[in-house]
């Protein structure tokens, strides 16, 4: 059961990794194209700036669970490095619980903010007019996945296939 959730998470995270990579390509190409178009004397796109901003949001919060799965989030291991494996496992589990709880609470309030914007029909009036709830949904989605991944880390540490690197 949990191992199939784990597999599913792997797929979702990889898909978001691909999405984040595509956003990076979009940043370079859209801004580059905007410069080219303008210097050719053609009208500027207008939407580049805000689309890039939303793109960064996607990279940050949908990329984060993928990065977590790849063990690439920065943590300070100087104090924990010297600990015995048993103690280390306990400490890392506590830290995963703290992180998972943080993500759950953040997800709840962020989802509430998105829901409220949805009910009110709030719109973001920029060059493009976009419903605010779409933008506000990105973070709750990302941190929910982060919470699941932190819990899966605990599960993997105690029940899953043994990993070489306990972090």
């Amino acid at each position: 059961m949990i191992s199939s959730i784990d597999k599913g998470m792997g797929r979702v995270c990889d898909a978001f990794g691909v999405a984040a990579s595509l956003v990076v390509a979009f940043l370079a190409l859209s801004v580059g194209a905007e410069v080219a178009v303008r210097n050719l004397g053609l009208p500027a796109f207008g939407w580049t700036l805000e689309m890039c901003e939303y793109g960064l949001l996607v990279v940050t919060f949908l990329g984060a669970p993928w990065v977590l799965r790849r063990h690439e989030h920065i943590s300070v291991d100087v104090f924990t490095r010297a600990l015995r494996p048993r103690t280390l496992r306990v400490l890392l589990t506590i830290s995963d619980v703290v992180a998972a709880t943080t993500c759950v609470i953040l997800a709840v309030y962020a989802a509430e903010a998105a829901h409220e914007a949805f009910l009110k029909g709030s719109l973001l009036f920029k060059y493009l007019v976009i419903p605010q709830w779409i933008i506000l949904s990105v973070m709750p989605l990302g941190v929910t996945l982060l919470a699941i991944e932190f819990l899966l880390r605990i599960w993997r540490r105690f029940a899953g296939p043994q990993e070489v690197n306990p972090a």
């Binding site: 989030h73 104090f79 924990t80 703290v98 943080t102 982060l146």
Partner: peptide, 29 residues
Amino acid sequence: GIGVPVAFAFLALNLAGAYLILGGESGLR
């Protein structure tokens, strides 16, 4: 120090700060 990734240490503190300093649930939102 106990190994919470840097980003999540900040986020955890922010939750506490938002609740205590910005003021309760509207602070969290």
